[in-house]
Structures are given as structure tokens and as C-alpha cells.
Design a protein around this nucleic acid. Structure first.
Lengths: 218, 218
DNA sequence: CAACGGAATATACCAAGGTATGAAGGCGGG
DNA sequence: CCCGCCTTCATACCTTGGTATATTCCGTTG
């Protein structure tokens, strides 16, 4: 069992994937072999539309994209993807780019912007950075999403109590604030702790921070 | 002309300042009048060295800088300033820039990278963004610095107790962890609350977050 | 050396947090 | 209509947090 061929283990980290979108098939193939040579998975597409039609791979992944694409431009595609669930780090390539284009891409969060011809190592460095960013991002997203799900399982009152408690008020102060008896606040508070799966008040405060609670009504 | 010369009010928000560094005097003057026309303070320098010799103005402020400067390059100056106490947002200008230069500047956090000739409005927009960034940044810095100062006033034991308490442990658990009696932990804890000026445990937890406590020894 | 502050501990007391049991009213869905 | 859920509150009891007072030990500094 020195793991070789069959890798259907559920806890497998899933090989990092690079998605290449370029209308030049030769370049696609060259990039594909470059990336595979360092152990990365690769998906190739000739246009943005093809990519959108496909199912996005598991994280970590990133996009390597020519700024000039058939159909939408690379920059437009960047803004499009940024607000979609398959948001991922982007590395641009260009043959005839200009500075304003570069600035726009970088402002919108591109990891790098390489001019053709580029050195293989520059591309690999950019991809490594992008994949690491994606890993971190999806990790943070998951934590945030999980907490948000728990939070949504709270009733309106419970959310209210959680907000006040995590802002540092004592039970009696919370009670006065929302016109309840202290004992009722304690009950809600207990429910909040259980439902949020918080093992301590410190825990709950950190969750409230992640949720952005308390900033809301300032 | 209601308020012109004498503005020595202590709580004054201090006019936002744009610092221009360019070896072309004509351009300096043009930018100066542009910025003053929208009510901004301006400081003009012919080189990076001149700026470094001067006393940096109060926030909010930002730097407008030609990429090609006498002496150090704009990019080198950027890395230099980034780690210095007078760190501030930078907007680059260039007559003969290229894409790799642009990418490097943007990766290093430049707010914008304008090619000469640029439209006045583009410059003003960039400056407005930069000043807003600087305001936010210095606000966050100040909060963090204040908390760090309070934290440094704690004794070694108190720091230890603060770390464990904000990680969610009960007094008795803290006591067991560092081999103390519970009563002693309570005393240290009380000292921590007073010294850190925390009005509640929630407060203290948030401060610990700002300090990056608990991540340290995982 | 003496004084001082940090650290540790104990006893005692009070305030606050937390849970269990019981009970009551409102409101929506089967 | 009845059941379940949310909400509210009370009494009782126990745990935990927080403070005060007092004592001891240690190391540094005037």
C-alpha cells in the first residue's frame, strides 16, 4: 500500500489545477506540457465561453489567460468571473498589451501580467503564487461560510442577543436594551452558544467578528 | 476667504496633502496648480533625496512620483519607503514605462500608474483614492499601535494569562496550564483588564485578535 | 540594606454566568 | 384543532468571575 495508481482517497488534497484559456493551440500545448512537468493538472480552453460551460475543478486552481480572447476581452472576463462562484486568481498573458490595460488588470486583482514571450520560470512562479492565494482564499471562504450557516440557524431574538453579548454587554444590560428579563437573555444566550457550536465566549466573539457583527448599526 | 491664513485649531483634520516628486519643474508646477484647484495641499520635490530630507506631513497624504527619477529609480524608492515610517500610497507617472515595470509597481501596492500625458481627471481620481487609502491605513495603524503599547505594559505573566484567557479557557484551566492557583490567575486577569483598558472580555478578545495572539504558538 | 514592585497564595464575599424545571401565550402547518 | 416552535418569565441551584485584604518570597534599585 505504498499508494501508487488508485487514488480515490476522500481526503486527497486534489492536485492543483491550472486552467489555460488561449486561442493559440500551440501555446496551449506548450503551457500544458510546462505545467505538467512540475506536477500540475491542466485544463485547456480556446475561449472564455468554453470555460464557462465546463465544471470548475476543485481548489486550488488558477487561470492563465490571454488578454485578447475570441468573444469577450480578458479584462471583461476578469470582472465577470470575479463576482461568480468560480472566482479564482488570474494570470494574464499578452502579446500587444499596453500600460492602461495592465493597470486595470492589476487593480482588479490579477496575480501577474506577463508579456509574450515570457520565461517559463516567470510563469511557474506566478502560477505558484496564484495557487497559494486560491488555497488561502478558499480556506477563508469556507470558514466564513460555515459560520454564516450556523448564524442563519438562529432565531431573530437569538441573533439580537448574540450581537449584544459579543459587543461586551452583561446579561442584565442586554435585557434592559431589548426589554427582557435577565433570565430570558440567559436562555437565548445558551441557545446561541449551542447552535453556534461555540465552546466559550471568546469563541463567539471571534465568530461575531467574522460575521461583521456590531459594525452593522454603529 | 473666510478662513485663510491662521488655522492653528488643534482638532483640525489637517488638509490632505499631495507630495509631488518629479525632476521636470514645469510638470511640478502644473500638478501643483491642478491639486490646489481642488483644495489639496501640495509639496514639491525634484528628487527622492529632497523628500527624504524633509519632514513628512500629517495624514492623509500620498505621493505622486515619476518612475524615472534623478538618483534612485521610482520603483526602488517605492520599496524603500514601504518599510519606512513615512510609508504612504504612491501614484506613478511615466513617459516611457513598460509593462514589467507597471506590474512590479502595482504588485508593490501602487494605487495607479499613469502614462504621460494623462487626463487631469484621472490623476485627481487616483489621488482621491490614494488619500482615502492613507486615511484608512493610518487609522488602522493608530488603533493597532495604541493596543500594542498597552500590551507592552503588561508583565510576562499577565501576557501569558491574557493569551490563554482570550483563547477561551476558564480560569481554572489557565491555572492548570501554567501551574498556578486559580486565585492568582484571577488577579492577573484583573490586572490585564485594567492595564489594557478593556471594559469586557469581548473587548479583550478583540484586542488579542488585533495583536495576533493565539496564532503565535498554535 | 531597605524599599519597591512583581509574583504567588489564601480566605472570604459578592456579582455574574449557566442550567434545570415548570409554565404560559402566540403563531403557523398538518 | 392540535402539535411544534418561538418567546417569555419565575424559582432554585451551582459554577465561574471579580475584588478586597493580608501574607510571603524574590529580585532590582536607590
Amino acid at each position: 500500500m505504498s499508494n501508487s495508481s488508485s487514488s480515490r482517497s476522500p481526503a486527497a488534497p486534489a492536485a492543483p489545477t491550472v486552467i489555460v484559456v488561449d486561442d493559440d493551440e500551440q501555446l496551449r500545448e506548450a503551457l500544458s506540457s510546462l505545467f505538467r512537468s512540475v506536477g500540475l493538472r491542466v485544463e485547456l480552453y480556446g475561449s472564455a465561453a468554453e470555460l464557462l460551460a465546463a465544471k470548475p475543478p476543485a481548489v486550488p486552481r488558477c487561470l492563465v489567460l490571454d488578454i485578447r480572447l475570441p468573444g469577450v476581452s480578458g479584462l471583461d472576463f476578469q470582472s465577470q468571473i470575479a463576482t461568480s462562484p468560480m472566482n479564482m486568481p488570474i494570470i494574464f498573458m499578452t502579446g500587444h498589451g499596453d500600460i492602461p490595460m495592465t493597470v486595470r488588470a492589476m487593480k482588479a486583482g490579477a496575480v501577474d501580467f506577463l508579456t509574450k514571450p515570457f520565461r517559463d520560470q516567470d510563469m511557474l512562479d506566478a502560477v505558484a503564487t496564484a495557487l497559494e492565494n486560491d488555497r488561502k482564499q478558499s480556506e477563508a471562504d469556507k470558514a466564513s461560510t460555515d459560520i454564516r450557516a450556523l448564524y442563519q440557524s438562529l432565531t431573530a431574538r437569538e441573533k439580537e442577543v448574540m450581537s449584544l453579548v459579543t459587543s461586551g454587554l452583561m446579561n442584565k444590560q442586554v435585557a434592559a436594551q431589548i426589554n427582557l428579563s435577565e433570565i430570558t437573555v440567559k436562555i437565548h444566550r445558551g441557545h446561541v452558544m449551542r447552535k453556534m457550536n461555540a465552546k466559550s465566549l471568546a469563541d463567539l466573539v471571534r465568530m461575531a467578528e467574522t460575521l461583521g457583527l456590531g459594525i452593522t448599526k454603529a
